[in-house]
């Protein structure tokens, strides 16, 4: 169904980070938000993405925000870095979704919801770390990888799933030895994401717990919030609810805490 050759081809096609984006991220890392805004303004697509994303209802701004300096100011360094990584990932998303019933707007919504909820989770856990904050942006990479690799194998997967409860992640792992999260990690490496982000994403798969206590805890929260988000009608209709297996036991010990927090999410 999916060969290692197809996976290598996909990995080879991951584009390098665009120069303007790289420069913007560097300024954000240095805390130079005004300079970051100025550089970002040179890329119309990036500017449009930032304006669209920040004006989504989940960000909760009363008035529409158009000025990039203002946007970077509002987001702060952690928030700005998170949004820039989300943009980077959106560059990899397909123009037309075939496996999942998604479109650009719905995918951006998903990114925005995951980011905002992750922010609240980190506040709840008293964690203030730019890399950890940005880690959530890589989570939708697993969806993009799944779309790219499985879009031509929908019927095969449906037949397999008629006799055995197998998710895309397991099918890929059994076929190639790689899973969706391993390939997401390759994307992170190509784009020079900090190591910590890849480790959290691997733990968030729910099937590869980390030995590092903090990373494992963050993986659990991320796994649970992914399924909280994917249980929404729009994402169930998009076919995202069961693209990877939900590991109930992995998140059992944080569920009570999560359910209390979810009232605010």
């Amino acid at each position: 169904m999916i060969t290692e050759e197809e996976i290598s081809q996909f990995i080879k096609k991951i584009p390098p980070t665009p120069v303007i984006l790289k420069a913007t991220v560097n300024f954000v890392n240095e805390g130079e938000l005004t300079k970051a805004a100025k550089v970002a303004a040179k890329d119309p697509a990036l500017s449009k993405y930032l304006i669209t994303l920040v004006n989504k209802p989940i960000y909760g701004f009363r008035n529409e925000v158009h000025d990039l300096s203002q946007i970077f100011g509002i987001l702060g360094t952690s928030g700005a870095k998170q949004v820039l990584y989300s943009y980077m990932l959106s560059l990899l998303s397909p123009s037309k979704w075939e496996l999942f019933k998604l479109n650009k707007a719905l995918f951006y919504d998903l990114q925005a919801q995951l980011s905002m909820r992750w922010k609240k989770i980190l506040e709840h856990l008293n964690i203030d770390d730019k890399d950890i904050s940005s880690a959530i942006t890589l989570l939708p990479a697993s969806i993009i990888v799944c779309e790219a690799l499985f879009k031509n194998h929908k019927e095969d997967v449906a037949l397999l799933r008629s006799v055995k409860e197998l998710d895309y992640n397991t099918i890929l792992k059994r076929l190639s030895g790689f899973d969706l999260f391993d390939i997401s990690e390759k994307i992170a490496t190509t784009w020079e994401y900090p190591d910590k982000i890849s480790k959290i994403i691997q733990a968030a798969s729910g099937v590869k717990p980390s030995d590092d206590e903090q990373i494992n805890l963050l993986g659990k929260w991320m796994h649970l919030q992914l399924f909280y988000t994917l249980s929404q009608v729009a994402y169930i209709e998009a076919g995202l609810n069961d693209f990877v297996d939900f590991q109930v036991e992995y998140v059992q010990d944080i569920y009570e805490e999560f359910s209390l927090l979810s009232e605010q999410l």
Partner: peptide, 22 residues
């Protein structure tokens, strides 16, 4: 979502959160 059939039993496997909306 389709039922997985084994030994004469068809099983649906929803996941995550189930409420009146979803």
């Amino acid at each position: 979502m389709r039922a997985v059939v084994k030994d004469g039993i068809g099983v649906f496997n929803p996941q995550g959160f189930l409420d009146g909306n979803n």
